[in-house]
């Protein structure tokens, strides 16, 4: 018979092993991509796959030579940050009114917004393509910023709405009693209190924009193409070059991975309302 202490320890061990197994499973594709990117094309094609080989950075150099990585990266950065900033600018006031001035239709509006995410993007590809063409916005960063803002808006509003919902009304009413205008109430009280939640929302928006491929492939060609379009360009008619494809994928993922790693703390910190109860 196990004692209580022993069975607890066993439990911890099993749960721990399970967690590690899942983590490794999730990490494996990234690990394999990184490994492949350091091989020569011949090593990359070898069966069975080689675990021991002479690493090379040649693929990375070729990518920079052939395509100019930094142009694509810069497009990704401006589009992601632009769409996130614009999205937050719209989502914060929207969530504010829904969270603090709830009406009978608020819940319905929120659900309707979310339901737009269920629409298959390809279903509206033609009208949006034609609209972009009409306005002369094909292959421009502006069109991607607008599209990304719109497709992420439901998620941003939902997330910010739930964070705002946790903030006691009393605090905002106290600010109002103290003489704050609507703008002061938002900027000096509401936003500082919910900065943790807002930061995670922004981070999510950045990640979603960074990884988006469908619209970037369909609406851009060379000028405004972000990294997702660069990756796709490597699965070309010339045949598949596994090592180069892996290298370009690694380069595309790296910035957002590093960014996520750094801001991890901000993500998990959560909100604390010391002033309430």
């Amino acid at each position: 018979m196990l004692t209580l202490k022993q069975s607890r320890r066993l439990n911890t061990l099993v749960v721990g092993l399970f967690a590690w197994a899942i983590a490794l499973l999730l990490f494996f594709p990234i690990f394999w991509m990184l490994l492949t990117s350091l091989k020569t094309e011949i090593d990359a094609f070898a069966t069975p796959p080689q675990l021991i080989f002479t690493p090379t950075l040649e693929n990375y150099l070729q990518i920079q030579d052939r395509s100019g990585y930094f142009k694509y990266a810069w497009n990704s950065v401006t589009i992601s940050f632009g769409a996130t900033a614009l999205g937050m600018l719209i989502a914060i006031p929207a969530a504010y009114s829904m969270a603090f001035y709830e009406t009978k239709r608020t819940k319905g509006t929120l659900l309707w917004m979310l339901s737009t995410k269920m629409l298959p993007p390809v279903g509206v590809l033609v009208p949006i393509y034609l609209l972009a063409k009409q306005f002369g916005m094909l292959d421009s960063r502006a069109v991607l910023i607008i599209i990304y803002t719109l497709i992420n808006l439901p998620i941003l509003v939902w997330m910010i709405y739930t964070y705002f919902k946790d903030i006691p009304r009393d605090i905002l009413e106290a600010a109002r009693m103290d003489g704050a205008t609507l703008m002061q109430e938002m900027v000096r009280v509401l936003l500082p209190i919910s900065k943790g939640g807002l930061a995670s929302t922004m981070l999510l928006s950045l990640i979603l924009c960074w990884n988006e491929a469908f619209w970037s492939l369909n609406l851009t060609s060379s000028n405004a193409a972000p990294l997702t379009a660069l990756i796709a360009s490597y699965s070309s008619p010339e045949g598949l070059f596994w090592a180069k494809l892996s290298a370009v994928s690694t380069l595309a993922c790296a910035p957002i991975l590093i960014f996520g790693w750094i801001s991890q703390k901000q993500l998990v910190r959560g909100l604390s309302f010391g002033a309430v109860k």
Binding site: P168, D170, I171, E173, A174, A175, R176, M177, D178, G179, A180, T181, V189, P192, I193, S272, F273, G274, A275, V276, K277
Partner: peptide, 20 residues
């Protein structure tokens, strides 16, 4: 008149202090 301009001050049940 808006709450701010009424010249009243209020103490709330939850204290409603600004946590930041």
């Amino acid at each position: 008149v808006s709450p701010a301009k009424r010249d009243l001050a209020m103490v709330f049940q939850t204290y409603a202090l600004y946590p930041h």
